[in-house]
Computed example of a mutant assay.
Amino acid sequence: MALQDSFEHLETWLAEHAPVLLENLNPPASDADIEAAEAELGVTFPASVRSPRRCARRTGSTTGSATTGS
């Protein structure tokens, strides 16, 4: 099962079994989000780190510092 398929399967399960949790998740990181985090941290993430961030929904703040969320 591809990574994207795994996340879609998880979202389907959450929609049925834990819809409130699913509603409280933020969207996946955009390329701009990832690039901002790289710039803030002074690093370049390898593809193995970047790809899952494009699929995975996030918890916590969608704004602010990549390292602190504020």
Results as ranks from 00 to 15, higher is better:
residue 1 M to H: 11
residue 2 A to T: 04
residue 4 Q to V: 09
residue 4 Q to Y: 04
residue 4 Q to L: 10
residue 5 D to M: 14
residue 5 D to H: 14
residue 6 S to G: 14
residue 7 F to N: 05
residue 7 F to H: 12
residue 7 F to A: 02
residue 8 E to K: 15
residue 9 H to T: 12
residue 9 H to D: 15
residue 9 H to F: 13
residue 9 H to W: 09
residue 10 L to E: 03
residue 10 L to A: 13
residue 11 E to L: 01
residue 12 T to K: 08
residue 12 T to W: 04
residue 13 W to F: 15
residue 13 W to L: 15
residue 13 W to E: 14
residue 13 W to T: 06
residue 14 L to I: 05
residue 14 L to T: 02
residue 15 A to V: 06
residue 15 A to M: 08
residue 16 E to Y: 07
residue 16 E to N: 10
residue 17 H to N: 08
residue 17 H to V: 00
residue 18 A to Q: 14
residue 18 A to I: 01
residue 18 A to W: 15
residue 19 P to T: 05
residue 19 P to R: 05
residue 20 V to G: 13
residue 21 L to D: 06
residue 21 L to F: 10
residue 22 L to P: 04
residue 22 L to M: 03
residue 22 L to G: 08
residue 22 L to R: 14
residue 23 E to G: 08
residue 23 E to Q: 09
residue 23 E to W: 04
residue 24 N to E: 15
residue 24 N to G: 10
residue 24 N to W: 10
residue 25 L to G: 02
residue 25 L to V: 12
residue 25 L to Q: 09
residue 26 N to D: 11
residue 26 N to L: 13
residue 28 P to H: 05
residue 29 A to Q: 00
residue 29 A to M: 01
residue 29 A to L: 05
residue 29 A to W: 00
residue 29 A to P: 01
residue 29 A to K: 02
residue 30 S to N: 02
residue 30 S to M: 09
residue 30 S to V: 15
residue 30 S to G: 03
residue 31 D to E: 14
residue 31 D to C: 15
residue 32 A to Y: 01
residue 32 A to F: 00
residue 33 D to L: 08
residue 33 D to P: 12
residue 33 D to M: 02
residue 33 D to Y: 00
residue 33 D to V: 07
residue 34 I to D: 07
residue 34 I to H: 15
residue 34 I to V: 09
residue 35 E to W: 03
residue 35 E to Y: 00
residue 36 A to R: 15
residue 36 A to H: 13
residue 37 A to L: 07
residue 37 A to E: 08
residue 37 A to F: 11
residue 39 A to Y: 03
residue 39 A to W: 01
residue 39 A to N: 08
residue 40 E to I: 03
residue 40 E to Y: 03
residue 40 E to G: 13
residue 41 L to V: 00
residue 41 L to E: 12
residue 41 L to H: 03
residue 42 G to Q: 00
residue 43 V to A: 09
residue 44 T to W: 02
residue 44 T to V: 12
residue 44 T to A: 13
residue 46 P to M: 03
residue 46 P to Y: 06
residue 47 A to D: 15
residue 47 A to F: 13
residue 47 A to M: 11
residue 48 S to L: 11
residue 49 V to W: 00
residue 49 V to F: 00
residue 49 V to L: 04
residue 50 R to F: 06
residue 50 R to A: 01
residue 50 R to W: 06
residue 51 S to T: 10
residue 51 S to M: 12
residue 52 P to H: 10
residue 52 P to T: 05
residue 53 R to Y: 04
residue 53 R to L: 11
residue 54 R to Y: 09
residue 54 R to E: 11
residue 54 R to S: 11
residue 55 C to G: 01
residue 55 C to V: 11
residue 55 C to P: 03
residue 56 A to G: 09
residue 56 A to W: 07
residue 57 R to F: 01
residue 58 R to Q: 04
residue 58 R to M: 03
residue 59 T to M: 13
residue 59 T to Y: 10
residue 60 G to F: 12
residue 60 G to I: 06
residue 60 G to Q: 04
residue 60 G to R: 06
residue 61 S to Y: 04
residue 62 T to Q: 11
residue 62 T to A: 11
residue 62 T to E: 08
residue 62 T to L: 14
residue 62 T to K: 12
residue 63 T to S: 01
residue 63 T to C: 03
residue 65 S to A: 06
residue 66 A to F: 05
residue 66 A to S: 09
residue 66 A to C: 10
residue 67 T to H: 05
residue 67 T to P: 00
residue 67 T to Q: 01
residue 69 G to P: 12
residue 69 G to H: 07
residue 70 S to M: 02
residue 70 S to H: 12
residue 70 S to G: 07
